[in-house]
Nucleic acid binder design. Structure first.
Lengths: 191, 191
DNA sequence: GCTTTTAGTTTCGACTCGAAACTACATAGA
DNA sequence: TCTATGTAGTTTCGAGTCGAAACTAAAAGC
C-alpha cells in the first residue's frame, strides 16, 4: 500500500509554497521572503548577515547578494554595530513588515491550513518540529529556535526571564524571538 | 504558547532539504533532483516537459532549460512520440536512476525520518497529504497522485486494473506510478 | 484550406548559489 | 607594540533558476 514517501510530500509542498510566494501581488523570490521573515522574528544577537546565512543554510556570499536585493527594494535597513566595526545589524523597514503581513503565508497555504482541524494542525506542527530537530541534529545545523524553548532559558518570576548563556535579562517580547544560539533540549535519541 | 507556525516549520525543513540536496557528493540543484525524481515515478502519459512543468509549478520555458541541463549531464533521455510529432517523452538514464538511489532522500532527512517511530511517520504522512490536497484544491493545481489512489481507478480483479478515463488496462506496476490526470476523491470540504 | 490551439524551445534580465578572492576590523601571542 | 590569525562581510565568477514573451512546428477545428 505504498503511496508516496514523506520526502515526496515535503518536496511537493515546498515547491508549491515557493511557487505561490513568487506569484503573489508583491512577489519576491522565496529566499528573499525567508530572509525577510527571519529578520522580523529574530532577536538582537541574531540579526546579522552571518546569522541569516546560517539560518538559510547558505554561504555568506550568497546571502550578501540576497540582502543587497532586499535593501535595494527598500525592505530592510542596515545599522552599524556600536562595539564591533565589522558587524552589521539588519531590520525590516515598515514596507518590509507590511509585505510580510500581506504575503505570508500565501493564500492557498492559508486555506489548506484552515481546512485542517485544530487538533490536526497542532499535531502536524509537533511532528514537523520533531522532524526538523532531527534533521538539525543529524546535519550539525544550529537549531535557531524561539528563545523561550531554549535549554538556556530561565524563568525568574512572572514575566521575568533570563538567558543562561549571556546572563542577560529578557522581556516577554524577547522570549518570543528566534535566537541563533538556541540550544534544543536533548531528546534521548542521539547524544 | 506560540512557538513557530506550520508555515515556518515547512519553509525551514524545505530549505534544509534543498541545501542538503545541493551539497551531496553528486550534487544537483534541487529542481533538477525534483524533475529527475518525478520522471522516475510517472506513467507513460505524464513523462513530457509539459507534465514536468505542471508538477514543478513552473513555466514550460523554465522547465525546458532544466531538462536541457539534465540531458547535458546524461541523466535523462528524450524520445519522440510515435503519434504526435510535437510531444517528447523523457526518461531517466541508468546514470540518472543510480543518482536518485544514492542521493534521495538526503542523509540528514533519512536519519530524522528513522528517528520518528512508525506510527508518527504514518501519521505525519497522512497529515501532509491532507495539507497538500488542500493546497492543490485552493490553488487550482493538478493533484498528480499515484494512479491507484485516483477516482478513475477501477479494480477488475486480482492484479487487473483499469483507468476509467482512458479505459485502458493497467498492470500492478502502472498502478503505482504518478499520473498527471490524477483526480483526488472529494473530501467534503470544497466542491 | 485556413485559423486556432497545443507542445516545446529560445532569449532576456533579475536573481540564486557556492567557491574563492578580497577588505576591514578584532584579538591573541611574542 | 608589532604581528599573526581569526572573523564579518563584500565582490566576482560561472552555472543555473525563474517568468515573460517571442518563436517554431505540428495538430485540431471548422
Amino acid at each position: 500500500m505504498e503511496r508516496a514517501s514523506l520526502y515526496e510530500y515535503l518536496s511537493r509542498i515546498s515547491r508549491l509554497l515557493m511557487a505561490e510566494e513568487r506569484s503573489g501581488r508583491e512577489a519576491l523570490p522565496a529566499v528573499q521572503m525567508a530572509a525577510l521573515h527571519y529578520l522580523n522574528r529574530c532577536n538582537r544577537y541574531s540579526d546579522t548577515p552571518a546569522s541569516v546565512a546560517d539560518y538559510l543554510a547558505a554561504t555568506k556570499g550568497t546571502v550578501s547578494q540576497t540582502l543587497r536585493a532586499l535593501e535595494n527594494k527598500g525592505l530592510i535597513e542596515r545599522h552599524a554595530d556600536a562595539n564591533d566595526g565589522r558587524v552589521v545589524h539588519l531590520a525590516p523597514t515598515r514596507a518590509g513588515k507590511q509585505l510580510l503581513r500581506a504575503e505570508i503565508p500565501p493564500p492557498a497555504f492559508r486555506a489548506a491550513e484552515a481546512e485542517l482541524g485544530n487538533d490536526d494542525r497542532d499535531q502536524l506542527r509537533e511532528l514537523l518540529e520533531t522532524l526538523l530537530r532531527g534533521m538539525q541534529r543529524s546535519g550539525q545545523i544550529s537549531s535557531f529556535g524561539v528563545c523561550r524553548t531554549c535549554s538556556h532559558f530561565r524563568r525568574l518570576g512572572e514575566n521575568r526571564f533570563q538567558c543562561g548563556l549571556t546572563e542577560e535579562r529578557l522581556t516577554p517580547a524577547d522570549s518570543e524571538k528566534i535566537c541563533r544560539e538556541h540550544a534544543a533540549y536533548a531528546t534521548g535519541a542521539n547524544d
